[in-house]
């Protein structure tokens, strides 16, 4: 029986790796992938607490997280495609039209 803490530690480490990727990478698609890592880390801790309390609410929440992730990815990749049409690059540093 693995303690709850191990799952929370795994979740925290994966979330930090996702934050690192979002802050460091310049490629828009890889930034989206790192956001996916963060969402998955949240799912781990939701399900761990769910098992700990022996109820199913957390699993329903992580189901909702999956729905939101699917919606976010489809819209985000459509935005990436339309950005690529205007300027043939997906380097995020080159898109500074709305920058102050």
């Amino acid at each position: 029986m693995v303690e709850l803490e191990y799952y929370l530690i795994l979740s925290g480490i994966l979330f930090s790796i996702g934050v690192l990727g979002v802050l460091v990478r310049r490629n828009a698609i890889v930034v989206f992938m790192c956001v996916e890592i963060m969402l998955n880390a949240v799912n781990i801790s939701l399900i761990a607490f769910d098992r700990y309390n022996n109820q199913h609410d957390g699993q329903v929440f992580s189901f909702m997280v999956m729905c939101v992730a699917a919606a976010e990815v489809s819209v985000g990749l459509a935005i990436v495609i339309s950005m690529y049409r205007n300027k043939p690059t997906i380097n995020l540093d080159e898109f500074n039209l709305m920058k102050w």
Binding site: L14, I17, C34, I37
Partner: peptide, 11 residues
């Protein structure tokens, strides 16, 4: 899974 997540960032 941690190794593969690092692989996502550093690939």
């Amino acid at each position: 899974s941690v190794l593969l997540a690092l692989g996502v960032v550093f690939n």
